[in-house]
Design a protein around this nucleic acid. Structure first.
Lengths: 342, 342
DNA sequence: GTGAAAGCGCTAACAC
DNA sequence: GTGTTAGCGCTTTCAC
């Protein structure tokens, strides 16, 4: 009523929250000084620093990282794409990655790609849109479209959990084929005559199966193989043994593509009155927390997930800092953990 | 050399990537038209739409969500804070949340707070800085500082997995105390005389223990209780039974604060030659995927994680759209799944 | 050590 | 249906 021609756009936009200008005004300094006090405290005088800190805490100011990221071209975000967070396999890698990046002031944006390529494609756009400072991928098998986009976007990429002749950018992993080979040799050494294999139908599990089957083939053994849909569950393990025994009753050892699967298999074996490993030996993959404590303790393949996470973080922080990261590819290997079940 | 006083700041900033202006130029339209073609395709003419699409795909343009979020005050990001991604307990909630929000065009930023309040505090600032459109918390127990910040930041907050007399904002969960009460009643009904309890030392597990112990107390039963550090592992379950039997050899039933714990307990019991449930009954909590397939099948408490995730998403999208979300609190209850182990 | 000006890439508001 | 203008909140650049 009493207002006279207030500019119509006075209250047009803005989040309504506290901004760096509010803090600056209260502290009696300029916005840029507040920015410096927060990001490079060493470059402002102690007195100024104190005034700014006071203003920050009394206003409850929390810097807008969207604005900061836009202006500085540093989003402080690293994206990690995993097939699924349900499985306990990748979580150690993610945890280590998250921890290492937190020290560098970065947060991890976790994306679930599912085991289907199509979903990964959609995710990748959403992820690139956030302008992360790095993208960590699980596996080296991606659609051509994904590879093209990732290579073109200029963001440091780290593939993990596998090796590749043609990495997109950087890589830390190990050879799944060699895992299969090593387990086949182990079981032969132990004297098993009719080893089989149960795998989830994902790419890396298939590589392990191939190494396993080929190695046995070379010894004249034709290993029966059963597949279950990824992600493989405990139930799948129980069912898989049932199917396996139907088609090949005399199996004396089974290499499973995950510890969970192996656990299901053991449970089914025991439910049928078998003794493990006397009647049937079982080996897993992953060396999850429970593997050592199963009864019998599970023979499995140990993979150092945290090291992959830390190396991925290193690759990215080195690149961001302009440091020479050294070799862009790292094979961290694996080890067979010989316990009671095989 | 031949340059004459080129403005020194010519190549000053910028990501060097494709921007909306590059696309606009190529398509022969203005930037805002490109923006509309991408965000509200219905508002531009079919011809324009096609030109823009062509320019987008030929340049490989991916919109910068940092810039878009800053300008529109819509980050298209929702933060979810869980104690840990290691445990399989919350993942279904997160998956459902992620799925429901993806439909609304939002991504989920997952934060691991750990079971310690201090870590949650630090995370909260980092999260608020991204200006998410909602924050989903696990549990209702937060430090005073966290509560203050969350309440003050103006972002819709959803607490999950518990009830509260004093929610910060919105809430979807169930009563852990009632879970303890219900399980105590169930075991009494089944005729168990010396029920015990093994819990992780986190807040919600303690509530369940309290309901359980109090209910038994009222029946004149003094239930032995063993605690293990959170997050409880399979190994903890095995050890817990050992400790329990040391202090109270005659226990005939154990309620565990998680299925994983229960599984460890059963394994230890079997390793000691006990029959479950004949010699000792075991009940879990969570109804994880493997619970039904254990041998014996695990009696446990079923909680609808996905529904909590979907409800949390609804709360947030309703609020964002300015819709009336109805009641701000929702108790989704739980159910005891009676199987073989108890 | 501090500040003024400019602009990151996008979209809200308004005009045509 | 499309364009112009003016910011969103921050940091870079340059000047003092």
């Amino acid at each position: 009523m009493s207002e006279t021609k207030t500019p119509r756009r006075a209250a047009r936009r803005g989040s309504g929250g506290v901004t760096i200008n509010d803090v600056a005004k209260l502290a009696g300094v300029s916005a840029i000084t507040v920015s410096r006090a927060l990001n490079q405290p060493a470059t402002v005088s102690p007195l100024t620093l104190e005034k700014v800190k006071g203003a920050v805490s009394s206003t409850g100011y929390v810097p807008n990282l969207l604005a900061g990221g836009l202006a500085s071209n540093r989003s402080r975000l690293v994206a990690a794409l995993v097939p699924t967070i349900v499985g306990p396999v990748f979580v150690q890698t993610i945890e280590a990655l998250t921890g290492a990046l937190a020290e560098a002031g970065c947060q991890v944006l976790l994306g679930q790609s599912g085991y289907a390529d199509s979903r990964e494609d959609a995710l990748i756009d959403a992820v690139i849109g956030r302008r992360p400072e790095g993208i960590v991928l699980t596996g080296t098998s991606h659609s051509a479209e994904s590879r093209r986009k990732l290579a073109a976007c200029g963001i440091p990429i780290v593939e993990t959990w596998d090796l590749s002749q043609t990495p997109i950018d950087m890589l830390v992993g190990f050879s799944h084929t060699e895992v299969g080979v090593a387990m086949a040799k182990h079981l032969i050494e132990r004297g098993y005559k009719r080893p089989a294999i149960v795998t989830a139908d994902d790419h890396r599990a298939s590589l392990r199966r191939q190494g396993y089957v080929d190695t046995l083939q070379a010894q004249g053994i034709d290993a029966p193989a059963v597949q279950v849909p990824a992600p493989a569950t405990f139930r799948d393990g129980r069912d898989a043994l049932a199917r396996l025994l139907e088609q090949t009753p005399k199996v004396d050892a089974v290499f499973c593509s995950s510890d969970v699967l192996a656990h299901g298999l053991i449970t089914e074996a025991m439910a049928r009155g078998f003794k493990v490993p006397r009647d049937i030996a079982v080996a897993g993959f992953g060396d999850l927390a429970f593997a050592a404590d199963l009864h019998p303790a599970l023979t499995t393949v140990h993979v150092d997930g945290p090291t992959m996470g830390r190396q991925a973080a290193r690759f990215i922080t080195d690149r961001a800092a302009g440091r020479d990261p050294g070799p862009k590819m790292r094979d961290i290997g694996f080890s067979i953990v010989k316990r009671d079940s095989a």
